[in-house]
Amino acid sequence: MPKEGGGRAEYGGSYMEEVEWYKKPRQISHVGELIDMMKEMLFIKKLFEHHRSLWWASYMFHMGIYVLIVFTLLLIATVIWRQDLLVMGTTLVGMAGFSLATAGCALLLVRRALDPTLRKYTTPQEYFNILLLLAVLLTGIVSWTMVSNPFYVAAAVLTANGSAIPVFVTVHLVLLGIMFIYIPISKMSHYVGKYFSFHKVLWDNDPNFMDNEVNKKMKKDAQTPPEHSWSAPHINLPKNGEE
């Protein structure tokens, strides 16, 4: 539990190692939590530690996506402030982002298709997800290296000058749009799920004291009794479960 303070996070210890823990102020390390989160976000630490062979591809891909987000922001900046150095920097960042993400994505696809275990559990939809990403990346590469230049297109988009955008680039942009719409309804939004699974599930060990946050939430939840109920015979026994 990375948020445990007092040096406990290092070996997985918790406040329950204290005598009369409920009388003592909780030692929480927000820095520890933040560092661990950053390690997961920027480094995919768990995969690195426990599944190195897959980490390479996954890391290239995810890093590539982060770099491409930076590339997009820089691209917008160049529309507002066209400066040679900025344009050069943006170009380099874009090249790095596209190479990392595309190579990572292709490796993930190959790994998934060739590894007999992964293949068994992968649904056609999951291949489709990767192929969609790959299509966006590849059309992006072709657009920016052979068809047009991203600075020109960025300016055209921001000034709503659609007619200036070549057809192939439009295809790329439409695919990109589809991907953005599709992400929230697919498991590609696992970056959001991951936040919840770590924060609300794995790291949620706050005790329930009279009138603390946990207690208040429980009281609020108790105000709406469930509509559904279980049906096994012992569930509805009188005297609280005694036969």
Binding site: H50, H51, L54, K187, H190, G193, F196, K200, P226, E227
Partner: peptide, 30 residues
């Protein structure tokens, strides 16, 4: 019913595991 209000306490982790598994197979080793 697992996915209804009579299973409130477990609903969130259950949904997360059902929806987001990346089938990366890291857990098998463990």
């Amino acid at each position: 019913k697992l996915f209804t209000d009579c299973n409130k306490g477990s609903l969130e982790p259950l949904q997360l595991t059902m929806e987001y598994c990346a089938k990366c197979n890291t857990c098998s080793e463990a």
